[in-house]
């Protein structure tokens, strides 16, 4: 199963490598949103630095929705997902493979968005470790739930625009706790022994488990 999951992940990465949708469309979108926030909030440095963590996770969540949609759109062309199923690949392998590929793309997105925030809003950075670990945990949770709802809403018609409405409320706890982690990371304080990191980690494990359990029933008709 691991070998097949890896094949699926490799395939999704190759598709991104060939089409560069994440690189050419989604990441620039994230940067455009950051700039827009700068204009809308009138570049008051203190304010921007203060809201940077929340802003970051909102931008990451919204941009990830495009990546998730994309991840299912490539499967709908020529009914390719059906092809995977006919190779005898079980849903868990598809889930793990797609999650891995999605997570890699999200990490790149997050790195670019974080760099953008660092340059544009100039927030202080106390603990890089806390930033990184909480980002990994939150990314897995967003990806996992996103894939389940991507499968649930995938249909020939009208499904794609539904994805944000389904995913955003479910992931509210992740956005809250990840943003709190990043707020705490601005001020160094507790380092990676931050109480919010524990919360992000617990949520992330729960969402991963829910995602793994629900993806199969959601995918198979």
């Amino acid at each position: 199963m691991i070998r097949r999951a890896w094949a699926v992940a490799r395939k999704d990465m190759l598709i991104e490598f060939r089409s560069k949708v994440a690189l050419n469309q989604v990441i620039p979108f994230a940067l455009a949103v950051l700039l827009t926030f700068g204009f809308a909030l009138d570049t008051r440095d203190r304010l921007l630095a203060e809201i940077a963590p929340g802003l970051f996770w909102v931008v990451v969540l919204f941009s990830s929705l495009y990546l998730i949609s994309r991840s299912f759109r490539v499967e709908r062309e020529n009914s390719a997902m059906e092809g995977l199923v006919l190779y005898g690949v079980d849903p868990m392998a598809i889930f793990l493979g797609k999650l891995a590929a999605l997570a890699v793309q999200m990490f790149v997105l997050e790195a670019v968005a974080a760099a953008g925030i660092a340059v544009l809003f100039n927030p202080p950075v106390g603990s890089l470790g806390l930033l990184a670990i909480s980002a990994v945990a939150a990314t897995l949770a967003i990806g996992s739930i996103g894939l389940v709802y991507g499968a649930l809403s995938s249909s020939e018609h009208s499904g794609e625009s539904l994805l944000p409405l389904l995913v955003i409320p479910v992931l509210a706890p992740i956005v809250i706790s990840a943003a709190k982690c990043w707020s705490d990371a601005e001020s160094a304080g507790t380092g990676i022994y931050d109480p919010w990191l524990k919360i992000v980690a617990i949520f992330s494990v729960v969402f991963l488990a829910v995602g793994a359990a629900a993806f199969g029933p959601a995918m198979e008709d």
Binding site: L152, H157, I176, A214
Partner: peptide, 30 residues
């Protein structure tokens, strides 16, 4: 979403159960 009754029932049941698990998590986090 236009789907056959069985598919719709299954998908929405999955969504309802995720929501059920999610509500206490949302509450605690808030």
């Amino acid at each position: 979403i236009p789907l056959s009754p069985e598919v719709r029932a299954k998908r929405s049941a999955v969504a309802a159960l995720i929501a059920f698990i999610d509500v206490p998590i949302v509450h605690e986090s808030v």
